[in-house]
Design a protein around this nucleic acid. Structure first.
Length: 453
RNA sequence: GGGGAGGUAGCUCAGCUGGAUAGAGCGCUGGUCUGUGGAACCAGAGGUCGAGGGUUCGACCCCCUCCCUCCCUACCA
C-alpha cells in the first residue's frame, strides 16, 4: 500500500541554498576570511548550542523571546546561539590563561532567532563576525571597520556606507541637558527610530506625548512614560543629533585613521542618531548599508561592549565587534548588480564528454590531467555504447550547469598523430571565431588555461 | 507583535454566477537526430486544487478553523 507522501517543505524562516547561490555565498565568505586574516584575525569556532544559563546571561527581556530554547533528552535546558557575542564572552572567560590580549578573532556560521520571517529576515541566518578584545578605543574600531571595508571592497562592493556613533557622546549630551543617565538606554532606543519615523514622532515619544492607540501594549506605553523627558531637553537632544560636528570631535582621530586605512570619505559618516538596539553596547556603534539596497535592511552592524565578561569573570575586559549578515549582503549585492546572483550549478571549468563507453578510460585520463593541473574538470557519468549519439545531450547538460569549456575525444581525434582532442568554448555562440579547435592532447592544459585566463 | 493580500503541476499562472474525466506556458524525461549546447516539432511523466471540517444533489469556487507565503508596519543581520 502506498505510504502517504511527505511534503518536502522547509521549516519557517529556514532556507536551502542550491549550488548556484551557495557558490556565491561561499565566495563572499572566502573574501572576508582572506581580508580578516590579512589583519591578523584568527578563526574561532564555538558550538551552536549553549546552555540556557549562558545564553540568557546578558540579554534584555526582549531578546529572550527570540532565542530558540528547549530541553535536550537529558532535560538540560539549552538554546541555539542568536549571535556570536555571548559565546565569545564565555570562551574568553573560560580560557583567559590561554588567550593573549589583544584577542583578534573572526567566526562564520549560522545563528538562530525566533522571530517573524520577512524579506531579509530569516530564523536561521549566517553571520560573519569579527571581534577585538582587550584594547581601548578607537584603534580597534579603526581596524575592525577597515577589515570589513576591505572585504566589501574586494567583492567589488564600493557602494557601501558605514554609519558610526558613540553612545558615550550621547551620554554627555544627556548629562549636559540634565537627563538622568538611567534613562539613557531607553532614550537611545527611541532616538534610533529617528531615520525611520521622523523628528516629530521621536520628539513626541521622548516627551511622552504619543497617544495610547499608537502602542502595541500597555507595557510599552508604561515604558514610554518612564522615558518621558522635558520638552527643552528633547529639543536639545534632537539638535545635538542633527549636528555632527560634536560627534566628529568626540571621535577624535578615528575618521582620519579609517580613511588612512582606505575607507573613503564617501563610505563612512558620523551619525549621532545611530544607537542600535542591543543593550550591551557601551561606546562606539556602527552599521553598514549597501547603497541602493537600503530597503533590505543593514547588512552589518556592531559596536563596543565594555563589560563583556561581567557575568563570567572578575576580570573586566573591553572589546569591539561587528557582524556582517551573509544572507542580506548576498541579496544586497545581487540587487545592486555587484555580484551575480547565480553562479553555475557545477564548479567545473571543463567538461569532458564521453564519446563512447569504449573510450571512457581515455576520457578519464584527460580529466585527470586537467585536475592535476588544478583545473576543475567534470566527466560525463551517464553512458551507453552509443558512438557519439549522446554528445548532444552531454553538451546540453554542460551548457546548463554553466561549465565554460568542453573537450571531446572521439575515435578520429585520438587516432591522429599526435593524438588530438576537440576543445570547445561553450560561452561563445555558433559560428564564432575560436569556438572549437582541434588541438594535440598534450597541449590541452595550456589551451584551457589560456582560454580561462 | 499589529494591519492587508494570497495558496491550483517543479516554476509562473488560467479555470465562467458552484456542474461531471482540472488546463496552458516554462522546466523535466525521451524521440525526430549513430560526431556536437542554447532552435523547432512530437510524445511522456508530474495534481488527494495548502490541511481539516461544514453548507449543497454536486465544491478548486461559498462558510469556519488551522498551516504556510508575500506586502506595509514595530525590532534586528
Amino acid at each position: 500500500m502506498a505510504q502517504e507522501r511527505i511534503k518536502p517543505r522547509n521549516l519557517r524562516g529556514f532556507q536551502d541554498f542550491l549550488p548556484p547561490s551557495a557558490q556565491a555565498r561561499q565566495r563572499i565568505v572566502d573574501t572576508f576570511r582572506e581580508a580578516f586574516e590579512l589583519y591578523g584575525f584568527a578563526p574561532l569556532e564555538t558550538p551552536a548550542l549553549e546552555t540556557e544559563e549562558v545564553l540568557l546571561s546578558d540579554m534584555g527581556v526582549d531578546a529572550n523571546k527570540q532565542i530558540y530554547r528547549f530541553s535536550d533528552l537529558e532535560n538540560v535546558k539549552v538554546g541555539l546561539r542568536f549571535d556570536f557575542t555571548v559565546s565569545l564572552a564565555r570562551t574568553v572567560a573560560a580560557n583567559l590563561n590561554r588567550i593573549s590580549l589583544p584577542f583578534k578573532r573572526y567566526q562564520v556560521g549560522p545563528v538562530w532567532r525566533y522571530d517573524k520571517p520577512k524579506r531579509g529576515r530569516y530564523r536561521e541566518f549566517t553571520q560573519i563576525d569579527l571581534d577585538i578584545i582587550g584594547v581601548a578605543p578607537y584603534e580597534p574600531e579603526v581596524e575592525m571597520v577597515a577589515a570589513v571595508a576591505r572585504g566589501l571592497g574586494k567583492l567589488g562592493a564600493d557602494n557601501y556606507i558605514f554609519r558610526v556613533n558613540d553612545r558615550r557622546y550621547l551620554g554627555e549630551v544627556l548629562e549636559r541637558l540634565g537627563v538622568v543617565p538611567e534613562k539613557g538606554k531607553d532614550i537611545f532606543r527611541v532616538l534610533d527610530k529617528l531615520q525611520k519615523q521622523g523628528e516629530k514622532k521621536v520628539r513626541d515619544e521622548l516627551t511622552g506625548k504619543l497617544l495610547l492607540q499608537d502602542f502595541e501594549s500597555a507595557l510599552e506605553y508604561e515604558r514610554m512614560q518612564e522615558v518621558a523627558i522635558p520638552g527643552e531637553a528633547a529639543d536639545g537632544l534632537l539638535a545635538a543629533i542633527k549636528d555632527t560636528s560634536g560627534l566628529r570631535e568626540h571621535l577624535g582621530g578615528f575618521l582620519a585613521r579609517v580613511e588612512q586605512e582606505g575607507v573613503g570619505e564617501g563610505n563612512i559618516v558620523a551619525d549621532p542618531s545611530l544607537t542600535r538596539g542591543l543593550d550591551y553596547y557601551t561606546g562606539f556603534v556602527c552599521e553598514v548599508d549597501i547603497r541602493g539596497a537600503e530597503s533590505l535592511g543593514s547588512v552589518g552592524g556592531g559596536g563596543r561592549y565594555d563589560d563583556l565578561l561581567g557575568r563570567y569573570s572578575a576580570n573586566p575586559l573591553t572589546g569591539v565587534g561587528m557582524s556582517v549578515g551573509l544572507d542580506r549582503l548576498a541579496d544586497a549585492l545581487a540587487a545592486t548588480g555587484v555580484l551575480e546572483a547565480d553562479a553555475g550549478q557545477s564548479s567545473a571549468q571543463v567538461f569532458v564528454a564521453v564519446f563512447d563507453d569504449a573510450l571512457r578510460a581515455e576520457c578519464a585520463s584527460i580529466a585527470r590531467s586537467l585536475r592535476e593541473a588544478g583545473v576543475p574538470a567534470e566527466m560525463w557519468l551517464a553512458g551507453g555504447n552509443r558512438n557519439g549519439r549522446t554528445l548532444s545531450k552531454q553538451f546540453k547538460y554542460a551548457d546548463k550547469v554553466g561549465i565554460p569549456l568542453a573537450v571531446v575525444a572521439g575515435e578520429d581525434e585520438l587516432a591522429k598523430d599526435p593524438p588530438c582532442v576537440q576543445l570547445k568554448d561553450l560561452r561563445t555562440g555558433y559560428g564564432q571565431e575560436g569556438k572549437q579547435n582541434e588541438i594535440p592532447r598534450d597541449e590541452l592544459v595550456a589551451w584551457v588555461k589560456e582560454l580561462l585566463a
